Amino acid sequence: SDFTIRIGDRTLHLKNVSEEILKILEELLRRGIDFEELRKIVEELIK
């Protein structure tokens, strides 16, 4: 499924993301992860 994360004025667009990855990202966001850290993790996950 497609997913968009907005943190402040920044946006991260994800396409064809599995439910498992979404759950991980949601947990990281709940813990207050930094946007740049989140972006790096996402890039690793979707390689």
Rank of each mutant, 00 (worst) to 15 (best):
S1P: 13
S1K: 14
S1R: 12
S1V: 14
D2I: 02
D2R: 00
D2S: 05
D2M: 01
F3W: 03
F3V: 15
T4Y: 11
T4F: 13
I5E: 00
I5H: 00
I5K: 00
I5F: 03
I5Y: 02
I5P: 00
I5A: 02
R6Q: 15
R6L: 15
I7V: 09
I7E: 02
I7Y: 06
I7D: 05
I7A: 02
I7Q: 02
I7L: 08
G8T: 00
G8V: 01
G8K: 03
G8C: 02
D9Q: 05
D9P: 02
D9S: 05
D9Y: 03
R10L: 10
R10G: 04
R10P: 00
T11S: 06
T11M: 05
T11N: 04
T11H: 08
T11G: 01
L12N: 00
L12R: 00
H13D: 04
H13N: 04
H13C: 10
L14Q: 00
L14T: 00
L14C: 02
L14P: 00
L14S: 00
L14W: 01
K15C: 10
K15N: 08
K15R: 10
N16F: 03
N16D: 09
N16I: 04
N16V: 03
V17S: 03
V17T: 05
V17Q: 02
V17G: 03
V17M: 04
V17D: 03
V17H: 01
S18L: 01
S18Q: 05
S18G: 06
S18P: 14
E19R: 09
E19N: 11
E20F: 02
E20R: 06
E20V: 04
I21C: 02
I21E: 15
I21M: 15
I21D: 15
L22M: 14
L22V: 15
L22D: 04
L22Q: 14
L22H: 11
K23W: 11
K23R: 10
K23Y: 12
K23L: 11
I24R: 11
I24M: 13
I24E: 14
I24W: 05
L25N: 00
L25W: 02
L25C: 06
E26Y: 08
E26C: 11
E26D: 09
E26N: 11
E26Q: 11
E26P: 04
E26W: 04
E27N: 09
E27R: 04
E27L: 05
E27D: 13
E27C: 10
L28F: 07
L28Q: 09
L29E: 04
R30T: 13
R31V: 10
R31T: 11
R31M: 10
R31Y: 06
R31I: 09
G32P: 13
G32D: 14
G32Q: 11
G32S: 06
I33C: 08
D34V: 07
D34I: 05
F35A: 07
F35N: 05
E36Q: 07
E36L: 04
E36M: 06
E36G: 03
E36F: 06
E36P: 04
E37Y: 03
E37I: 05
E37M: 05
E37F: 03
L38T: 04
L38G: 02
L38K: 01
L38P: 01
L38C: 03
L38W: 03
R39D: 08
R39S: 14
R39T: 15
R39W: 07
K40D: 13
K40F: 11
K40Y: 10
K40R: 13
I41T: 12
I41K: 08
I41R: 09
I41V: 11
I41F: 08
V42L: 09
V42Q: 02
E43L: 09
E43P: 07
E43C: 03
E43M: 10
E44D: 12
E44Y: 05
E44C: 10
L45S: 07
L45K: 05
L45W: 05
L45V: 07
I46R: 08
I46P: 05
I46N: 14
I46G: 12
I46K: 09
I46A: 10
K47Y: 12
K47F: 12
